[in-house]
Design a protein around this nucleic acid. Structure first.
Lengths: 142, 142
DNA sequence: CTTGACCCTGTAGCATACTACAGGGTGTAT
DNA sequence: ATACACCCTGTAGTATGCTACAGGGTCAAG
């Protein structure tokens, strides 16, 4: 157990608060670590990476529940392959949808930038169009 | 005012609750609309698009405050061009960072999928590596 | 021993983003 | 007039994700 870290060290390295680490443990996002005789937690170094992942995924819009699902996508020897495959594919689709939406915002911002350079007048609001999808609405011809 | 909508219609079309529409108005995400003599709100049709944008942007991890900032990136005739440019560029960078992070998760999931197909053993946890960045941690050689 | 940083559990509170409800008014069809 | 769906304001509550605190124990250095 050469790399065991106290909760404070984990929190510092992962960029979160100590309470957050305990909170994630309560939620099951982090496995409960072994303890010293004093009751102090001793985390494997891997925990830092895990919490960083959680942080980043949250920033991308995933709820903690969703993050837990992502983290569960490990290959375990006992998990049937077809089951993993379906779960991974679902997540992939979700991620691809998010990426497409981000691309649309990006494109619109680039157009805004171009319009700014050219001094062209903008009479529409292009940012609202960026995330328009196939839902119908606001386009009635009355 | 051919396209004026009651709050219930806006909510239905935008896919949110009536209370949410009022909430967004209180937050300033939606301009307060004109009223009938009865006090009923009459929203322009554009509001549906606006709320949809808010919804989608939230799903991508933007806070409502951040969404408000995105929505404010309209070209107004009175806004100096250099100011708009800087704001847009900041948002672009943020969006590009999020896209890169999503791409990394995507790549990892695809690798997981491939590993599943080939029946290759995975001894690491690739999902955690997906969002590793240049922060140092968990890699100490003791 | 003292000091200060760190740890523990458990409870309460804050921030964000809604969501529901009370009490009452409005609009439309029967 | 009645019934029902919808509207209003204002207040309170819920869910999520922390964040802070109380009360007390541990650790290491001076």
């Amino acid at each position: 157990m050469g790399g065991a870290l106290t909760i404070g060290e984990v929190a510092r390295r992962a960029g979160v608060a100590v309470e957050t680490v305990r909170y994630y443990e309560r939620l099951g996002l982090i496995p409960p670590p072994p303890r010293k005789a004093s009751g102090y937690r001793l985390y494997p170094e891997d925990t830092v990476r895990r919490i960083r992942f959680i942080r980043h995924a949250k920033e991308l819009g995933f709820s903690l529940r969703e993050v837990a699902e992502l983290l569960a996508l490990r290959l375990e020897p006992t998990t049937p392959c077809a089951q993993v495959k379906r779960r991974v594919q679902e997540k992939l689709q979700d991620i691809q949808r998010r990426m497409q939406a981000l691309q649309r915002i990006e494109k619109t911002l680039e157009e805004l930038l171009g319009a700014c350079r050219e001094g062209a007048p903008i009479t529409q609001c292009p940012i609202l169009e960026a995330l328009e999808d196939t839902e119908r609405g606001g386009k009635r011809h009355g």
